[in-house]
Nucleic acid binder design. Structure first.
Length: 212
DNA sequence: CCCTGATTCGC
DNA sequence: GCGAATCAGG
């Protein structure tokens, strides 16, 4: 692959957006992250400060990583400060036969149907109606216990920190600050860690049997 | 280990 | 100009 105008343009765009070299390489295809970095330097783009405004003396310390900047988006209503009692992380979640839950970017976790959550009733992700929500009793007690335990050790990653090898199980309420992704090592080829795979993927028969 | 960007240097 | 190898770091 060569650096065609289009590819260079895409590179510039993504780099400006704060995408990492490896992400850009993946997107472009046919090049490694090294190639991307090399190109970035040759193009003189290495200083990701973006504009050239004011930046004299002293590096901005935290160069505003992608993760840092990507955090805030999903806030619907401002909800004037006010002391919001910390909602405890919902423990139980949907357990669809096929993974209907987080799908990387769209990950708008349906808030657990276990904890009512104060104030914020429940922000429906928007768009289509939610898929049938499996009730808590459709999940085996063992899996549930395992999940509760594991979530205490979650790495609490933000959306942007997820990779192909991190568990993408959402924890907490996306409408509050108590929201993150599990982030523990995911099972090879699976989107979740062992514990979360346990509640995400279940044989239909097992679910039916447990159902009330 | 996973990941990041920076630099070097033979091609 | 290109990018693998390497370095330095989180």
């Amino acid at each position: 692959m060569s650096w065609t105008d289009e590819r260079v343009e895409l590179l510039k765009r993504m780099w400006a957006e704060g995408q990492s070299a490896s992400q850009i390489a993946k997107e472009l295809g046919g090049v490694t992250r090294n190639a991307v970095i090399g190109k970035v330097h040759r193009l003189g783009l290495s200083n990701r400060a973006g504009d050239g405004a004011t930046e004299r003396d002293e590096a901005p310390e935290a160069p505003a990583t992608a993760a840092a900047r990507a955090e805030p988006p999903a806030r619907a209503a401002p909800e004037p400060a006010a002391a919001r009692p910390a909602p405890e992380p919902a423990a139980a979640r949907p357990a669809p036969e096929r993974p209907a839950v987080p799908q990387p970017a769209a990950a708008a976790a349906p808030s657990g149907n276990v904890t009512p959550l104060p104030i914020r009733k429940a922000i429906v992700p928007a768009g289509q109606p939610l898929p049938p929500q499996p009730s808590i009793n459709e999940i085996s007690p063992e899996a549930l216990a395992s999940v509760r335990e594991v979530e205490k050790r979650a790495r609490k990653l933000t959306l942007m920190e997820l990779t192909e090898r991190t568990c993408k199980w959402p924890i907490g309420d996306p409408a509050t600050d108590d929201f993150w992704f599990c982030g523990l090592p995911s099972l090879p080829g699976k989107p979740y860690c062992e514990a979360h795979v346990g509640v995400a993927f279940q044989p239909m028969s097992a679910r039916r049997d447990r159902r009330r």
